[in-house]
């Protein structure tokens, strides 16, 4: 046996020529096999074909890894975008909530209504007393009563006006904030395309379990008793606050007057409740005549990932914000 000659491109070694047959040594099987030159060529060709398969397989793996990375980047982008969308929703809701009680206008209105109510009640008491004890002064007492009633009616009219103004300003503030934010969203990356967000809902309401900001006025015992009897004041170990949105009517003949105090966080030991984000489930709708004290917004964002034209969906974020609470009365 001569020195084996190697054949490039296959695993066989040519050992010896015997007529038209050849001896081959397979290193893997560690044995000598005999085959024709034709068989040898076919096997060698088959071996090259296997190498091609590996190339295809490698390409498939690379494609799968690339797909995985695209999914990873896309999902990471979605998480980041959703967090950003939530922060934007919070910002918009807060902008509206701060505007609602701007300059403590709702808190002051509630306080004025409570005091006006007390004034009407006191004026009626005085008028009745004057009628029986000092009939010559009845005209003045009646004038004072009429003035206090007129003030109460005017206040109710101003309250309705404030409701419109405060709510419109809050809505405008939210729209402005949204306009500022929406331009920062659109982007187109190989793995993700983000469109402009849409403001689909802006609502004004109140938070549950929040009564008015006005503490029960304690100067007139009869009125205190009347309020307790009609449950106009929330019985609590802390602050005794007028209930939100009750008509708080006075005894006849002043029962025609309306004294609505809306829901607003009161100052507690001179601590003003700052505007803040709240849980969406604590949002409640207000009645038609009630001034809102919280906002709720919902924004959606169309996002397409790099996984094809069909891989797009809307991310949504909702936020509820409570207005700044009332300030302490001077």
């Amino acid at each position: 046996m001569g020195k084996p000659r190697s054949r490039p491109g296959n695993n066989f070694l040519l050992h010896k020529r015997i007529t038209n047959r050849q001896w081959f040594h397979s290193p893997r099987n560690k044995k000598v096999i005999v085959m024709s030159r034709h068989t040898f060529k076919v096997r060698a060709k088959g071996s090259r074909r296997q190498s091609g398969n590996m190339l295809i397989l490698g390409s498939v793996v690379m494609a799968l890894v690339g797909l995985g990375l695209t999914i990873g980047y896309s999902y990471g982008g979605l998480v980041f975008t959703h967090n950003r969308l939530q922060a934007s929703a919070d910002e918009i809701a807060l902008a509206g909530a701060r505007k609602l009680n701007d300059g403590d206008r709702i808190g002051q209105m509630n306080n004025m209504i409570a005091r006006s109510r007390q004034l009407v009640y006191e004026s009626r008491l005085q008028r009745d007393k004057v009628e029986s004890e000092y009939p010559q002064l009845i005209a003045i007492a009646q004038q004072l009563l009429d003035e206090s009633r007129d003030t109460a009616e005017e206040l109710e009219s101003q309250r309705k006006h404030l409701k419109i103004v405060a709510q419109n300003e809050a809505l405008i503030a939210m729209e402005k904030k949204f306009d500022l934010i929406k331009g920062t969203y659109p982007m187109s990356l190989p793995w993700m395309k983000v469109n402009s967000p849409q403001l689909v809902r802006m609502r004004l309401g109140r938070l549950e379990n929040v009564e008015s900001n006005v503490e029960e006025l304690k100067n007139i015992a009869q009125l205190e008793s009347w309020d307790k009897q009609h449950d106009f004041v929330k019985d609590s170990p802390g602050l005794r606050l007028y209930r939100r949105n009750c008509k708080a009517e006075l005894p006849s003949p002043e029962s025609d007057l309306k004294f609505y105090m809306c829901s607003l966080a009161p100052p507690v030991e001179k601590t003003v409740s700052p505007a803040h984000i709240s849980l969406a489930k604590s949002y409640k709708q207000v009645q038609e005549h009630e001034i809102a004290s919280c906002t709720q917004v919902k924004i959606i964002l169309n996002v397409a990932t790099g996984l094809g034209a069909q891989a797009q969906s809307d991310l949504s974020a909702m936020s509820t914000a409570a207005a700044t609470g009332a300030s302490p009365q001077q």
């Binding site: 009564e211 609590s236 170990p237 802390g238 602050l239 606050l241 966080a265 009161p266 507690v268 030991e269 601590t271 003003v272 409740s273 700052p274 803040h276 984000i277 709240s278 609470g325």
Partner: peptide, 13 residues
């Protein structure tokens, strides 16, 4: 933390 107000029922933060 968002709510830095005080509870009117207990006066606690």
């Amino acid at each position: 933390w968002e709510n830095l107000g005080r509870d009117p029922e207990t006066t606690f933060y």
